[in-house]
Write a protein that binds this DNA or RNA. Structure first.
Lengths: 109, 109
DNA sequence: ATACTATATGAATGGACAATCATATTTATA
DNA sequence: TATAAATATGATTGTCCATTCATATAGTAT
């Protein structure tokens, strides 16, 4: 594995807002407005993230009236689900680790 | 899954240097000097990363003379191997994505 | 055409953190 | 005990990027 793949993978998936957006889209296709409602992330911020996710090929988009409906890529859906399962399975270990007590991480809860 | 677990998981694993250190330790236990040789990461930087990884419970340490031998945690080893497999499997998709062309990612290759 | 809704874009700001450098600590050996 | 080897620690710096705010664009309906 080379640095480029690694960086891209962790950059794109490693942001909580983007991961939440992808988790929402794993359930069903959604417009931007629906994503905003589902995630409580502010609209322009969602748009910025969608730009990133489109750029990655992690999502596709189609028009419906003046709405844009986003759809998650099948492989990405699989990855998101696996990571979610993994984190849930190791939840206790992860939470008990010292990193969880660092200021910058604790304060964002 | 909550934000805290997510943040910890991606913070600890999502750094390329730390991931390379963990990949090395997945093969065998190593002293700091051996990690430095294996990864070409500068010594004090390795020590900082080991501090983080110890803090996480991702590695354990034992003394041998004036050396410190680090050992990877079994669960983390499993995670590192799975992520490596995953990235290798989706390598082409990841590389072809627009993110890979961003300045800050391209220039680090 | 106008007003309204939905979404996108651009610029600015602040915070997180990896890497580096210098130095301290620990252990071994002469 | 003095010196050398191995590792850790502290402080600093630069960069990346998520968020926010303000505004632009596009589509719809009246």
């Amino acid at each position: 594995m080379e640095k480029l793949e690694f960086k891209v993978f962790f950059y794109a998936l490693g942001d909580y807002s983007r991961f939440m957006i992808l988790s929402s889209l794993a359930k069903r296709d959604m417009s931007v407005g629906e994503i905003v409602s589902a995630t409580s992330i502010e609209q322009s911020n969602v748009s910025h993230h969608m730009h990133c996710l489109l750029n990655c090929g992690f999502v596709n988009v189609r028009k419906n009236g003046n709405k844009r409906i986003y759809k998650i890529n099948g492989k990405v859906k699989n990855t998101v689900e696996k990571i979610t399962e993994h984190i849930d399975a190791y939840r206790k270990d992860i939470i008990s680790c010292g990193i969880a007590n660092r200021r910058y991480i604790s304060k964002v809860i």
